[in-house]
């Protein structure tokens, strides 16, 4: 346990610089974009008024009101960058041990105690980065709305529906505990998978790694496919919809844990310098 905590602390320290830069930049970009877009809208209204000799009310009626969705239109793209960063982090957190003049992987594998802590420390770090990123994004959305509200006169605001539905943004804004939980589970699964791929690549030589990956993919997909085939073919209609969903969730969980255990086993027994 102590080793795990110390390792996690070390991993966080090593990743914090990049994390702060990226996340900071994202937040600044988002807030800036809201301000800029709102100001541009205001400018357009003024221009319209001047050009057409219209009153404010007429201008707003003709030109249209400004919605929060419009103000935050680039948020989806910026959040994508955030996702990309997490993916890069999940890969880099392993590869940095081999790359460069110093091979920290030697030191990690030589440390007394269980090797599984190495895996868990890195997993924890990436998950923490993910969770805090999500949290900060949520705060940014809230803050953006505050900015939007403050900068824009009431009459200019688009009256209903703050956000266009189906965007990432909506997910964030209407966040509740269940959503956070699901998001976390999904992130965990993706990170788990990324770790697994990295560890396979690091453990097996090139061609063998590819073969290994394909084999693992088969092990995972085959039962899944089989169940799908059975339940939608000969046994269709046997289960209620909610039972289907539960079944798939169970299968996915099994797959998830399988990948997790395989990764840990690789770190414990097969990982080589």
């Amino acid at each position: 346990m102590k080793k795990y905590l110390m390792l996690t602390n070390e991993e966080i320290k090593r990743s914090s610089k990049l994390y702060l830069i990226v996340v900071g930049a994202l937040i600044v970009l988002e807030l800036l974009s809201v301000v800029v877009k709102t100001m541009l809208y205001e400018r357009s209204i003024e221009t319209f008024m001047r050009m057409n000799q219209a009153s404010e009310l007429e201008a707003v009626n003709s030109y249209g009101t400004f919605s929060f969705a419009a103000a935050t239109s680039i948020f989806d793209y910026i959040m994508m960058i955030g996702v990309a960063y997490i993916v890069v982090l999940a890969l880099q957190i392993w590869y940095r041990e081999w790359i460069g003049e110093s091979k920290h992987i030697y030191r990690l594998l030589l440390l007394p105690g269980s090797r599984a802590s190495i895996y868990f420390a890195k997993l924890t770090t990436v998950l923490l980065a993910t969770v805090s990123l999500i949290g900060l994004q949520w705060l940014t959305v809230v803050a953006s709305y505050g900015l939007f509200d403050w900068l824009l006169p009431e009459s200019h605001k688009f009256p209903t529906g703050l956000i266009k539905s189906g965007s990432l943004l909506q997910v964030f804004y209407s966040m509740n505990i269940e959503d956070v939980f699901i998001l976390l589970m999904m992130s965990c699964a993706v990170i788990n998978l990324l770790f697994f791929i990295v560890l396979i690549e690091r453990t097996f030589r090139k061609s063998r790694a590819m073969i290994q990956l394909i084999a693992e993919a088969m092990i995972l997909i085959l039962p899944f496919g089989l169940v799908m085939y059975i339940t939608e073919g000969p046994l269709s209609g046997l289960l209620l919809r909610v039972e289907y969903v539960t079944l798939y969730l169970v299968l996915l969980s099994i797959g998830f844990f399988y990948i997790g255990f395989r990764s840990i086993r690789l770190v414990q027994n097969k990982l080589s310098v």
Partner: peptide, 29 residues
């Protein structure tokens, strides 16, 4: 755990000073 190893490469993260490395060893071993 009774064997110590002296490799022919550096094994500490590049940002570390020698003092950091000593603290590291003290913490883990």
């Amino acid at each position: 755990e009774k064997i110590a190893f002296v490799p022919d490469v550096q094994t500490m993260p590049s940002y570390m000073t020698i003092g950091d490395a000593l603290t590291y060893m003290n913490d883990y071993y």
